[in-house]
Design a binder for these strands. Structure first.
Lengths: 207, 207, 207, 207
DNA sequence: AATGAATGAGACTTCATTCAT
DNA sequence: CATGAATGAAGTCTCATTCAT
């Protein structure tokens, strides 16, 4: 029992190491320009060994992206759920998004590049998962909006549109931040984002 | 004169045909999975013929994306500039973005996937161009915001943040539309987008 | 008559021009790295036009080398035949070889490299011709040796061996001269070559 | 230890096998007409395998020629150095040259054709090496001549010219032998060559 | 279970040659 | 006759995957 447990742990450890190196290399070179040989040697294994952990290159890529995404969404939700007030929830949403980006620049770059989303014919698997996750996340944000409307913090309106809007603004900010890679932390913009999101940019006079 | 003109026209016609087919195929399969052979045969040419129009696969891809992007940005700016009132400018901006997306689903899909942004070492050429164009576009939107502030249609604030915001919302809407590929035209959302952008989603009471 | 004659002359003129340019390009790049396109444009013709003068690339190469070789051998023989005395004949042989080399460095380089001697299966044509010409030339030199023996200027011995020897020494000198491309004219060595050839390098004492 | 040694040996064995087959094929068809596919299948490997031993076609060719040349020059020098008397040294020089030619007809044919000496721009590597080796060899022969002059076996004169001469005669004899591919062994001519070299062909009377 | 050498399919690209204008 | 755009066969090289050790 002890022994098999230790084995299991070693296995997980090795698997994680591979995924971690794979993330770096895929992020740096994209799916197609990364090679199994490089991932293997960087992880300290032989090429063939990778195939005992993953079915192949595509599978390795899928799993790496999937698991990372899962962690990201989980983190964000937990952050948001830890807040009670509507305003705080929104700020946490923005903040936790930004937090992830700041700590995973390479991975986000990979996601933005979207490399590998078009794989073999059967290769829509990852694409489908990413989209499903994204829809799911939108649903989550939507539910927050609905909550905001219930407690009359938000205008009544289509909560889904609001979700699109907020996620769009978030993405726009981190996209720009990534391209410029400024020294100022992205987190500084949290207030700005939630403010614009809630109040808009128009002068009240015009209404 | 007549003759060389006709030749020139034929040349352009063929070139355009290749670019057009290339767009479809790159969009469908991504940069790496598309083959010159397929692009050639789809365009009705032999493989070697492509090399009389373009230096190679990467060059073909770069040019196709570049030219398409140039047309897109030009279209959008002309639309916006044709309007005088601030509100109309914003609506036109949203509308012309949406219009392009609706008419170029495949290309936008390609852009979103970002495939090929990581090419050979020298292959940052395209990436750099895309980023430069994007920054340029942001600058353009920013100038509109500044104008809006001058004529006191917009709150005073950082016009660049406003530009990020608006482009982010636009992107979010068309991204979602593309994923779901709804039957409802994207243009229906123009009003919704500009409204949220100007007024925000918060209830005035909360302020 | 007049007209067809003029045509014929123009034809020859063009043909010569092509051969001349082809020589330069083949010499500079070797058979395989030279392209019909370059030969054509350098000669001021279109690619297709070359095919009205020559059957193809290999044929063009064969003819160019053949004709050049013919001229070389002819020149050498005439030089030698213009002399009456044995010693003079030998000196002229050496001198005219050297003269050709000095005036046709590129071509000789091509010959030495021997590029294109292995062409398609049927491509031994040129090889065979070169060899036949060479044998023929050896025969010519041999006849001089025989003459030298008759008039008792040369030791009696195998005249063919003597021919090999002389041509070998000549080649060795010009080969070295080409590699180093010295400023001193190759012709300076004529005396040296004929001297060694006739007297050997051994001290008489040893005999 | 045992194991890695065996691996190393197997590696060398395979490498040698490839080089050996490559030599035959390059010799038969020349650099450009030989294909990696043929070399691979002849050696009993897959195409890709060659690339684990050599960087590419040019590299394979360079190495094959280089190593062969090195062995040839080494063999010749050792033969010559094993002799003490001047005359013997010269005879050994001629003999070992002839010996190599007789046992490496294909390779010598390749060398004479010089194919591949004009490779890519960076491809002068081999050419430079061949020339450097040749110069080096000339230097070696020159030193023998100098020795011969010191012990007063040779006339005083330019030892370098003597070196050219001897190597030229040798080359001329084996070139002819190769072309005719006579049944008589080339070695029979050793005496003839050294004799002509030392005594020349002129009758003493003429001096 | 790990290794890593061998595999071989497949992609890009070149260029001699043809043929409609 | 001249043109030069189109052709397409053929060659090099890469790299995911396998399998004997």
């Amino acid at each position: 029992m002890e022994k098999s447990k230790r084995k299991e742990m070693e296995f997980q450890h090795r698997r994680t190491e591979i995924l971690s190196q794979a993330e770096k290399i895929f992020a740096a070179k994209g799916f197609h320009n990364a090679t199994m040989a490089e991932i293997a040697s960087t992880s300290g294994f032989a090429t063939g060994t990778l195939y005992q952990f993953f079915e192949g290159k595509e599978n390795l890529y899928n799993i790496m992206v999937s698991e990372k995404l899962d962690r990201m969404y989980l983190e964000i939700r937990e952050s948001v759920n830890s807040q009670e007030k509507m305003i705080d929830k929104i700020e946490k949403l923005v903040e936790s998004h930004f937090h992830f980006v700041e700590n995973n620049v390479d991975f986000c770059d990979l996601l933005i590049r979207g490399e590998g989303l078009t794989l073999s014919d059967k290769g829509t698997i990852l694409r489908d998962k990413i989209i499903a996750d994204y829809f799911n996340h939108i649903g989550f944000v939507e539910s927050i909006m609905r909550f905001g409307m219930e407690i009359r913090t938000l205008k009544s309106g289509d909560p889904r549109m609001m979700a699109y809007t907020l996620l769009g603004i978030i993405r726009s900010f981190f996209y720009y931040w990534m391209l410029t890679n400024q020294d100022t932390p992205l987190s500084d913009k949290v207030g700005c984002v939630s403010d614009i999101f809630l109040k808009g940019v128009g002068l009240e006079l015009t209404e």
